[in-house]
Every structure is written in structure tokens, then in C-alpha cells.
Design a protein around this nucleic acid. Structure first.
Lengths: 150, 150
DNA sequence: GTGCATCCTCTAGCTGCTGGAGGATCAAGG
DNA sequence: CCTTGATCCTCCAGCAGCTAGAGGATGCAC
């Protein structure tokens, strides 16, 4: 069977070497075997697992959710409701983020549309930032996002 | 003129006390006067400045951009092109983020639509994460975003 | 005077990596 | 055999933008 160094695994998956070590450290990737000189040696399974992680991260799943998804993936006889729930949760987090950004987009658009040519004293952008009442006021404070960093 | 404690300023602006101290530390807010017992004392100007910062943060402006905007706001005889440019830059950053999230939204939607009822072995969600070719592949790795954290 | 709120500084933690220091090891060329 | 450069190791610091806690000093009302 094929054995890989960490650099080879990095090339195969497009995940950087320090990131792979980081995933091992936080327990997303199992600690691999080592050579006599303490170098990590990976089998083919690691490629699949790391690709899974990478894909999930690209979709914005937080690490804790990926941990759950990997556990599920490792035990295929389990019911898959949890996986569905995690995906649904992530979807709604993404949608919430989009909606929030669209509010910002509208307000920024207004600022940019009203852009002045003169001095800062008459600048609409600065003015709008000073006077919150000029905007729709729809943007949120958004502390402690419930789910993903995104 | 009205003098405020840090707690009062926090209440007046909706910005938390440690955050105010943090803004002072990174130089967004000037260091205020102190009482004999070393407590911070703010004037009314601080309310306006902090509200400005809060609003800009809500709009997703990164701290460095806010620093620039505050400098501009402090010297109203300057031309306001920089302010316009910062707003435009922020707008395009927000738009880019929205576009990226919409790609994720579509892919997650597909996953959720295909959600299975049985075991993980047949779970579409897990399968989609394993097999990148099942999705549009449009999502980016998005390392080192050029502008805002958002 | 007693108790609680508020303030102070300092430090560490959050997420998800990224990069560097300082050193060991490996493989290839001369 | 020796050198060179790539790769590997561990550990630690840093990014953004806060947030929270320790441990202690005041302030104020009853």
C-alpha cells in the first residue's frame, strides 16, 4: 500500500503542511504512524479524510460540525438525521449571513451613490457614518454568531 | 459640560466597557482624562466618536479603514476621495462575500434537498462531502481575504 | 460600616489557521 | 565521503476584533 509523507499529502489534497499538523493537533485527523526518525507517514485513507475536511471547510462548516460529520462518516450504520441537521443548520447560517450582508450592501451602495466631490466637510460617506439615522438601521450588531464563522 | 464614566459611555453607545478600553488601546479612541483615582472621564465628543466607530464596524469596515475614516472626519478641509474610495472598496468586499456565500448556499441547498432517511451509509450529505465532483466546484479556498473580515 | 457596583490593569482565550525559529534528517550530485 | 538544498520535526507567536476572567481599588447608598 502507498505511504505518503506529510508534504506529499499536502500536495495531493491542496492543504498546507502546517494546516495538516494543526488538524492532527485538534483531533480532526488521527495521529499517523511515524518513521524511526519521527516523520509522519500517511496511508491513502488520510487523503480521503483530509479531502472531506477541506470540502466541509470550504462550505463553511465549523470545526466542531466537521468533527461530528467525520464521526458519522466513520460509523455508516448510524441514522443520518444528524448529518441532515448539520447541513440544514449550516444552510440557514449561510442564508442569515447573506441576508445580513445584503443590508450592508444596500447601505454602502447609498453611501457610494451619494459620494461627493468636494471636501470631507460635505462628504456623504463621513456624514452617513456619523449619523446613524440616515441609514435604514437594519444592520445588526451581530455579536456571537450562533454557528459558523463564515 | 457633561462628564461620563466608561460605564455611562458604554450604556450611551451600546458598546461594551472592555471594547471601549480596547479601542483606546489600539488608538481608535483617544486616551481620556482621568480622575484622581485613575478612572476614565469622557466628554460628549467621545459619544459621537464611539458611535461613528460602532456604525462603521456594523458596516464591516476593518479597523484600519476606520482609522483612516476618523482621520478624515477630524480634518474636514481634506478632499473626500479617500472616504469615497474606502466605501467603494468595502462595498465590493461585501459583494464578493455575498457572491461567495451564494455559491455555498446553492451547494448546501442541494445537499439538504437530497437528504436521506436511512443510514449514514446512504446519506447524501456525507456522500457529497466525500465526493467533491458531485458539486459545482465553484466554491473557493478563499485564503487571505484582501479586505474585510466580514 | 457594610455590601455591592463599578472601576482599574493585566493576561489569556476565542476561530482557524499561518509563519518563523532552531534544529534534525534525507536524497542527490560532485 | 561530503556538501547542499529540500523536507521534516517541535514549539511558539501572530492575525482580527474583541471577550472574559483574576485580583484588587474605589464609590456610593443604606
Amino acid at each position: 500500500m502507498l505511504q505518503r509523507s506529510i508534504g506529499s499529502l499536502a500536495k495531493a489534497t491542496g492543504v498546507k503542511v502546517p494546516t495538516i499538523r494543526f488538524y492532527e493537533q485538534i483531533g480532526l485527523l488521527p495521529a499517523p504512524q511515524r518513521t524511526l526518525s519521527d516523520r509522519r507517514v500517511y496511508g491513502e485513507a488520510a487523503v480521503g479524510r483530509l479531502a472531506f475536511i477541506k470540502h466541509a471547510r470550504q462550505l463553511g462548516f465549523p470545526v466542531e460540525a466537521i468533527r461530528d460529520l467525520l464521526r458519522l462518516s466513520d460509523s455508516p450504520e448510524q441514522p443520518c438525521e444528524t448529518a441532515n441537521a448539520l447541513a440544514a443548520e449550516q444552510l440557514s447560517a449561510v442564508r442569515a449571513k447573506i441576508a445580513q450582508l445584503q443590508v450592508l450592501e444596500r447601505e454602502l451602495q447609498q453611501m457610494v451613490d451619494a459620494a461627493c466631490i468636494g471636501e470631507v466637510a460635505n462628504c456623504r460617506v463621513i456624514e452617513a457614518l456619523h449619523d446613524h439615522t440616515l441609514c435604514a438601521g437594519g444592520h445588526q450588531t451581530e455579536r456571537r454568531p450562533t454557528y459558523a464563522g463564515l
